[in-house]
Design a binder for these strands. Structure first.
Length: 426
DNA sequence: TCTGGGGTCCTAGGACCC
DNA sequence: TCTGGGGTCCTAGGACCC
């Protein structure tokens, strides 16, 4: 039988956000470092040294403040402009190693290595790793296997090994390695499935691999079934080299401090709406549905808790900021209740389609449609050239008192000339 | 005091039709 | 008194990912 085995590598950047901060700050190399989520809320990236101190992924910052202080852990607020740019460089470098590549997230990508000989896979992995480190300064781990799920597992092992590369394609050690992986660490097994599997005595990736398909199908869904097949080495999830356009677009933020007034919520929603509209225009898309949601802190689940959302089905598809803000504010007004301390608000655009599909709107309610499209282009152009929010609309407000907290930002942006780090030579 | 943001896919159940 | 069966489509909510 002539049969081409899949060979898939998963390349994953180590502690990606921390590594990005370290690029321009040699003094924090080998020190405990964490990066916080938006609003300095949770820990979302940790250096190895910080992990050793017991700081957990996703933990609220206020809960680890003591450890941070006692151990002089370096803290950074998120700087997505920086991480996004470094990510682009990593991906561009990676692309040279395989024409078939799927960018899976900001810090990882699947590579099709089917054209590499079995015996050369490990060596090829080392070469990729070395090149990425040399060209971008970012350390990576690489797992190579015959399915995506197995390459994820290989990557998990690689993260713990000094060499940083693990090849399972011809390995006789697969079962031994899989039995070292806790069930909760398997790709596709989240909190609920972990609970269910452990209850049924399935504690490792190896245990799961050996389950009968019938039992899995009966007790879980197609997802669960797929994961087990992939662990057995049968590919069920294919590599997707072409990035499809998004189907939804969401912009939401927690407030820097609690908000009670409708006027401030209006500003926030208008601001989020403008950001989301800019994104979909960039992708040349239009939308049909718009959802606005507000909520108080979910950690206060009593009479002080309130959450609500309103979805508006637009009469015509559009990506016009002014029209979208108008509709969003109507939606917000319908769900706003006085007397609550709001913690977060956001906007979701759904039913996205390519703009050129519905170019002509027979019953357009927006007058001078062509003129408005030109206005949007002018706004986008100005904001690209002179910085975000250079041109906005009045409803988005100027003071933005509700805006997020960001107390520890490195303020470096490698895609903006003014925010490049400077080097002084004495 | 202080708990992120942005996605995808699946499923159950309701609305609706004949 | 007795109230079908089968299909599609849509939506909200849940689970998962990083």
């Amino acid at each position: 039988m002539l049969y081409n085995k899949n060979k898939i590598a998963l390349v994953d950047c180590n502690s990606f956000y921390v590594s990005c901060e370290r690029l321009f700050n040699p003094s924090i190399a080998k020190k405990p470092v964490v990066v916080l989520s938006s609003n300095d809320g949770c820990v979302i990236s940790r250096s190895t040294e910080a992990k050793v101190l017991g700081i957990k992924m996703g933990e609220p910052y206020f809960k680890v403040k003591k450890i941070v202080k006692e151990n002089n852990v370096k803290i950074f607020s998120t700087n997505f402009a920086l991480y996004g740019d470094i990510s682009r460089r990593v991906m561009k470098t990676l692309k040279q190693f395989s024409p078939q590549m799927e960018i899976y997230s900001i810090d990882e990508a699947f590579l099709d290595l089917s054209s590499v000989k079995d015996e050369s896979l490990l060596e090829y992995g080392y070469k990729i790793r070395k090149t990425i480190l040399k060209w971008t300064g970012i350390p990576t781990s690489i797992g190579i296997a015959t399915t995506k799920t197995l390459s994820k597992a290989a990557n998990y092992i690689a993260k713990k090994e000094k060499s940083g590369v693990v090849d399972l394609v011809n390995s006789k050690q697969i079962d031994k390695l899989l039995s070292k992986i806790k069930i909760s660490e398997v790709w596709g097994v989240g909190r609920q499935l972990t609970k269910f599997y452990t209850k049924n005595g399935i504690n490792t990736a190896y245990d799961l691999k050996n389950m009968h398909n019938g039992w899995i199908k009966k007790n879980t869904n197609v997802f669960g079934s797929r994961t087990v097949m992939e662990l057995k080495g049968i590919p069920c999830v294919s590599l997707e080299p072409y990035q499809e356009k998004r189907k939804n677009c969401c912009v939401s933020r927690s407030f820097g401090k609690k908000v009670t007034k409708l006027e401030e919520l209006n500003e926030a929603i208008a601001t989020h709406c403008l950001n989301a509209a800019e994104k979909i225009r960039q992708d040349k898309q239009t939308i049909k549905k718009i959802t606005v949601f507000i909520r108080t802190s979910p950690f206060q689940k009593d009479k002080y808790y309130y959450a609500n959302a309103k979805c508006i089905d637009l009469p015509i598809r559009t990506n016009d900021s002014i029209e979208l803000v108008k509709q969003a504010l109507i939606a917000l007004d319908s769900i706003y209740k006085k007397g609550y301390k709001y913690q977060k608000t956001g906007i979701i655009f759904s039913d996205l389609k390519d703009a050129n599909i519905y170019n002509e709107n027979l019953f357009s309610t927006i007058n001078n449609e062509e003129k408005r499209a030109r206005l949007m282009r002018a706004i986008d152009y100005t904001n690209t050239k002179y910085g975000r929010h250079a041109l906005s609309i009045a409803q988005a407000g100027l003071k933005k008192k509700w805006n997020i907290k960001k107390q520890h930002s490195s303020k470096i942006d490698t895609s903006c000339f003014q925010l490049l780090p400077t080097v002084r030579i004495f």
